[in-house]
Simulated assay, not measured.
Amino acid sequence: MKFSQLMMLTIISLAISYIMIGNPKVTSEIYILVIALTALYGAIKKEPNILHISVLLLLINLVEYIIFAYEIININSFFDNEVLYGSLIFGIQLIISILSIFIFVLRVQISRAISHSSKIELTYFDGLFHWVFIYLSLIYVLAILENLARHLLGWHNITLIYHSFESLVYIGWAVSCALLLTMVIVTEKKHKQRRFEPS
C-alpha cells in the first residue's frame, strides 16, 4: 500500500469513527488524547518539531474544549435568541481557528522562541497544518452565515451546515490525526535509516 493511500485510508477511517461515536464531548477527548500521545512521542524521541506542533495543537484544542465542555461562557442565557446563540458558538470557534492559522504559519519562529534546539526547522508538515484551520474557519464562517440566513431572513430550509456541522469538523480533526501519524511514521523511518547508515 502506498503512503498516500495509507494517509487517505487513515483520514476516512478516523472521520467515520468520529461520526459513529456521535458524542462531541467523547470525540473531542479522543482527539485530544491522540494529540497528547503524539506530543509524548515527540518528547521521548527528542523531536522538538513533533513535540511543538503537537503541544500547539493540544493547547488550541484544550482551550476550545474547556470553553464549551465547562461552559466558561454561559451560552444557556442566549437560548431564546437563536441569532446571538449561533453567532456566539460559531464565532468563538472561528476566532480560535483564525488564531490557530497564524500560530501554525509562525510555528518555527514560536518554536525557536521557546527552545534553542538545533533540530527546530521548517518541516513539510508546517505547510499543511494551517490548511486544516483554514478549512475549519471556512466551516465556521458558513455556519455563521447559515445561522443568520435561517433566523434573520427566515430561510429555514437552508440546513446544509446545520445538519452536517459535526461531521465537517471531524473531517478536519481526522486530517490532523493523519498528519500527526504521518509525522511519526516519517520520523521513525529517518531513525531506522540512521541506524543502518555506515559510520
Results as ranks from 00 to 15, higher is better:
Gln93Arg: 11
Ser97Tyr: 02
Asp126Cys: 04
Val63Asn: 04
Glu64Gln: 08
Ile98Lys: 03
Glu82Thr: 15
Leu136Asn: 05
Leu142Trp: 00
Asn81Asp: 11
Ile98Phe: 01
His116Gln: 15
Ile103Leu: 15
Val132Trp: 00
Ile53Gln: 08
Ile50Ala: 11
Gly42Ala: 10
Arg112Lys: 14
Leu94Lys: 01
Leu138Val: 10
Ile120Thr: 06
Ile66His: 05
Ile120Gly: 09
Thr123Trp: 01
Phe104Gln: 03
Lys46Arg: 15
Val63Ile: 13
Gln93Phe: 07
Ile72Met: 14
Ile89Ala: 10
Ile96Asn: 01
Leu84His: 05
Gly91Cys: 05
Pro48Ala: 12
Leu59Val: 15
Ser115Gly: 04
Gly127Thr: 00
Asn61Ile: 01
Gly91Val: 00
Ala39Asn: 13
Ile60His: 06
Gln109Gly: 02
Ile120Leu: 15
Ile72Ala: 08
Ile73Trp: 08
Phe102Ser: 13
Leu58Cys: 05
Ser118Pro: 07
Ala39Pro: 08
Leu51His: 06
Tyr65Gln: 11
His52Ile: 15
Ser100Tyr: 02
Val55Asn: 13
Tyr140Pro: 07
Tyr41Cys: 07
Val108Thr: 15
Ser77Glu: 10
Glu64Asn: 07
Ser97His: 05
Tyr135Val: 09
Ile95Gln: 01
Ile60Asn: 05
Leu40Asn: 10
Ser97Glu: 07
Thr38Asp: 04
Gly42Arg: 12
Thr123Pro: 03
Lys45Val: 04
Ile53Ser: 12
Val108Gln: 15
Ala143Gly: 10
Asp80Pro: 01
Leu138Ile: 04
Val141Gln: 01
Asp80Met: 14
Leu128Gln: 02
Gly86Cys: 05
Ile114Thr: 14
Val105Ser: 03
Asp80Gln: 13
Tyr135Asp: 03
Ser137Cys: 00
Ser137Asn: 00
Tyr85Ala: 08
Ile44Val: 15
Lys46Leu: 15
Val132Ile: 06
Ile98Trp: 01
Phe90Cys: 03
Phe79Gln: 01
Tyr135Lys: 02
Glu64Leu: 07
Leu51Met: 11
Val141His: 00
Tyr85Gln: 10
Leu106Pro: 02
Ser100Asn: 03
Phe133Ala: 05
Ser118Tyr: 10
Tyr85Ser: 02
Val83Arg: 12
Glu47Trp: 08
His52Glu: 05
Tyr41Gly: 04
Ser77Asn: 01
Ile103Asn: 06
Thr123Lys: 03
Ile60Leu: 13
Ile66Pro: 04
Ala113Lys: 14
Arg107Tyr: 09
Phe129Gln: 08
Lys45Ser: 15
Val141Phe: 01
Val83Asp: 09
Ile50Cys: 10
Val55Tyr: 13
Gln93Asn: 10
Ser118Met: 14
Ile103Arg: 04
Ser115Met: 12
Leu84Cys: 14
Glu71Ala: 10
Arg107Asp: 06
Phe90Asp: 04
Ala39Ile: 13
Leu88Val: 14
Val132Gly: 04
Ile53Trp: 07
Ala113Met: 14
Leu59Lys: 08
Leu138Arg: 07
Ile92Pro: 07
